[in-house]
Design a protein around this nucleic acid. Structure first.
Lengths: 344, 344
DNA sequence: GTTAGCACTCGCTTATTTAGAGTGCTAACA
DNA sequence: TGTTAGCACTCTAAATAAGCGAGTGCTAAC
């Protein structure tokens, strides 16, 4: 059986209604809905059809209908209207984002806060991945006795550093020369390939200092390049407002799942291959998120996608609004990162 | 009326029992308690006295008694027995703490995780405060065009850096000279005083570069010295296991209070003046923690207290165990920081 | 194809009952 | 004077029952 226009309309009305109210939608409510001039009996027939087709479910005989994951999928793909942000919402986001944002971590944190404040769901933001970035500059700087700092700047403008040991017989001039050689040779290499390359191509002056170099490489590989799974989370407790989590045990399970952030990090990392993703209920691999929907977006500096961020909420989520918010934040975050980093 | 030995004993028994069971303790339970050879009627009389003195409370007429904050205070001050860590507990902590801990932030995080895992309460750890540290080394290093990195090392061994703009007419030699002058002149100054001092004493070569210097100082004041209110939190959801939080609303309030970590940061900062603190129920300034107890300890490198960490739990907390755990972690954390930092 | 009508289902709320734990008080006892 | 047995009383929490009301599916008429 095909979904004709009327069935689609009814389904959309049911989903919209359920997203608002969180309680099963009855035929009467829909028949009164503006636009339809149908009696509740007719609606009931249509609803029975929709249930048979797998778009609706009935918690129990004498209750209304609840949309299935399949219905949400259809909704998101075909029927959802993006809900433009209201002035208040934009103002709210601005309030969060216009504080001094001089560190990347602070940007991530405020982004998460803005997202959760404006959507009332749980927000997560992963920090920029350096691994896909390319090298712009390496600098080795002597510090106190036997120690140096290695500073690496990437094409997206991120600087990171690590402190390493240095053999006492290396002069600061030599460090300077080594820095220059490394920078020249590996300019524009992907950060996560530098280790291999250096190991393979060591020659000339570099070869003499291979022990030292390998510790530089190790520092780059272990402390500078690694993407940190430090997902910024905000508004986890927002979920407790929703009837879906009025049971303490459900709340506990959700919060525990979210607290172990590694899983979120993995999700965001996977999601950062696509500009946007929407994953609904059972589409989530993780059992703990089978009643949740997760919407993500990526941010970037220039063309380079750097990471992603998103929203977790009940499957009964205001997809239209969430999507618009993510779209807005995606632009906003990319801009902030570009300008901030440039300015630093 | 004084608290004689018997009353003390009974009170202790009640508290111990209540900490275990979370439900009001009746006279019968205590009369059966080993050590007392008293009938429940006698205990009842004593309990009535204890209630009159403000050590016990009765949720309602036909329930047992519950210890008051005053009782816990007495318990903590005079009757509590430290509960030595079991082998399993030590093992559990070790498991958390023996992963690679090459960044301070990672140490904080794992400490929090270990604490919450072993106590089953909510753990919080504040990062080291640099402000009370003293300067050991300042180094300005040219990077790409018009940018330099300023690296600061403190006596406790922490290194931090920030990227700043540099006038194009400053040579790397001059940067080196300025670094040396600054280091010599402000060696062993408190980090949070450097700004003022530099501003006041600018002379000689420094005076010529006062605009540049003020941007260095600004970077130190804004990006390097400021103690970041990044409290590491772990096990917030542990609280949901306790009957105190079986009501979703109470859970919500608690979790929301904890999620806004600034408050925790302020508490920890205040607490870092004392080696240990225990704050019980109403002793907490914040209304949201009136049914919680908070136990904190400081960690240090050398003699310098660097920050503190602690546990939040219901007032009905296993104080003896928590105290021992904090004592253990305090040593352990201080050691790790000393050796790690030295090694970096 | 649509709709009015009707019997039926079933979860939710409210009332009522019951069981049990614990108390305070009194009177007797050592 | 301190301790204890006994007993009536209180109050909660769990169990049971009753009634309401929203919603359904089906049938028959339009």
């Amino acid at each position: 059986m095909e979904l004709d226009a009327r069935k689609l309309g009814i389904l959309k009305a049911i989903i919209d209604e359920y997203i608002m109210s969180a309680s099963p939608v009855g035929s009467r409510a829909i028949s009164k809905h503006e636009g339809f001039n149908l009696s509740s009996a007719t609606i009931r027939n249509e609803m029975a059809d929709l249930e048979e087709l797998g778009y609706l479910e009935q918690p129990h005989t004498s209750a209304g209908r609840v949309p299935s994951d399949k219905a949400y999928r259809l909704y998101v793909d075909q029927m959802m209207q993006k809900a433009a942000l209201t002035d208040e919402e934009i103002k709210l986001i601005r309030e969060h984002m216009t504080v001094k944002l001089d560190e990347v971590e602070s940007v991530m944190k405020h982004t998460a806060q803005a997202l959760s404040a404006v959507t009332h769901y749980t927000a997560m933001v992963m920090p920029p991945m350096l691994s896909a970035n390319r090298l712009r500059h390496i600098q080795l700087v002597p510090l106190r006795e036997g120690r140096a700092i290695v500073v690496v700047v990437t094409t997206a403008g991120f600087a990171r550093d690590a402190i390493i040991r240095v053999p006492v017989d290396i002069s600061s001039d030599e460090l300077e020369r080594i820095s220059r050689t490394l920078t020249e040779r590996y300019y524009d290499c992907r950060m996560d390939h530098i280790g291999d390359l250096v190991a393979r191509e060591m020659s000339g002056e570099l070869y003499k200092r291979r022990t030292f170099l390998s510790s530089v490489v190790e520092a780059i590989e272990r402390k500078i390049t690694p993407d940190m799974p430090n997902v910024q989370l905000s508004g986890a407790t927002n979920m407790l407002h929703y009837p879906e989590y009025s049971d303490v045990n459900k709340a506990k399970t959700f919060l525990a799942a979210v607290e172990g952030r590694n899983m979120l990090y993995e999700m965001l990392k996977r999601a950062s291959k696509l500009e946007f993703t929407i994953t609904i209920g059972n589409e989530n691999e993780d059992v703990l998120f089978k009643n949740c929907s997760i919407v993500t977006a990526t941010y970037q500096v220039g063309d380079e996608p750097l990471g992603s961020f998103g929203i977790i909420g009940p499957t009964r989520m205001n997809y239209g609004k969430v999507f618009s918010v993510l779209e807005y934040m995606r632009r906003s975050l990319s801009e902030i990162l570009s300008s901030e980093l440039d300015d630093e």
